[in-house]
């Protein structure tokens, strides 16, 4: 197996690119109530559970999903795609075989049924970021758990949303695909409000 070599090469390349026009302006500390924080998380969950996001936020099956308005019914990604433990397909077929890294995100993405492309290496999020089929409480508890959120504060999460171009794509997917709800800026604002409220979950 030469997977580790391939991984080293792939991750040596910049995974993220500066594309942001997003402002990260958290509300003043103490200005967001718990109730308002929970309302913000309800909207965050609408985004997290939307097919545009949850289709790739899958668990240990390592199989991305096809679901949402343009797919008819929920099913695993066609072609028996399995991204493997590498989450980039290095064990079998790299995601970037079809989801090629291109600079111009608008090019090609407007073609229905074609593989979406961004200026980054296509990949699944880490397995502990599993959202597909998870409840609001489950996603909430994962998102605030440093052990399962990449050791991120709410400010780090907002910054991550700004800098990961795959996440930007979710709001401009093209090709007749339904975008994630709200706007990326509104989603970032909700993350910041939820964070300032103390990252509350309904289960608290």
């Amino acid at each position: 197996m030469r997977v580790l070599t391939v991984l080293a090469i792939l991750f040596a390349a910049p995974a993220f690119a500066e594309v942001g026009k997003i402002e990260i302006n958290p509300p003043a500390q103490g200005s967001v109530t718990r109730a308002e924080g929970l309302q913000a998380f309800d909207r965050i969950y609408e985004v997290a559970s939307h097919p545009r996001c949850s289709n790739c936020h899958v668990g240990a099956s390592n199989r991305p999903m096809w679901s949402g308005p343009s797919y008819g019914k929920t099913r695993p990604h066609g072609m028996l795609v399995n991204a493997g433990e590498s989450r980039i397909g290095a064990e079998h077929i790299l995601c970037s075989t079809c989801h090629v890294n291109v600079e111009a995100t608008e090019r090609g993405n407007n073609v229905p049924h074609a593989a979406p492309r961004v200026a980054a290496d296509w990949q699944l999020p880490p397995v502990e970021f599993e959202w597909f089929g998870k409840t609001s409480v489950e996603v909430c508890n994962q998102m605030r758990d440093p052990e399962r959120n990449g050791d991120r504060t709410y400010l780090d999460i907002a910054s991550h949303l700004d800098h990961d171009v795959i996440l930007h794509w979710a709001w401009e997917p093209g090709g007749g695909r339904e975008p994630a709800p709200y706007s990326l800026q509104e989603h970032v604002n909700d993350v910041l409000a939820w964070g300032v409220a103390g990252m509350p979950c309904e289960s608290d």
């Binding site: 197996m1 030469r2 997977v3 072609m79 028996l80 399995n82 064990e91 079998h92 077929i93 075989t97």
Partner: peptide
Amino acid sequence: LNDEPTDEDIDFAMSA
């Protein structure tokens, strides 16, 4: 990437 593939590995790699 993998010079000792199982049947399942081959199916995953070649099904596209």
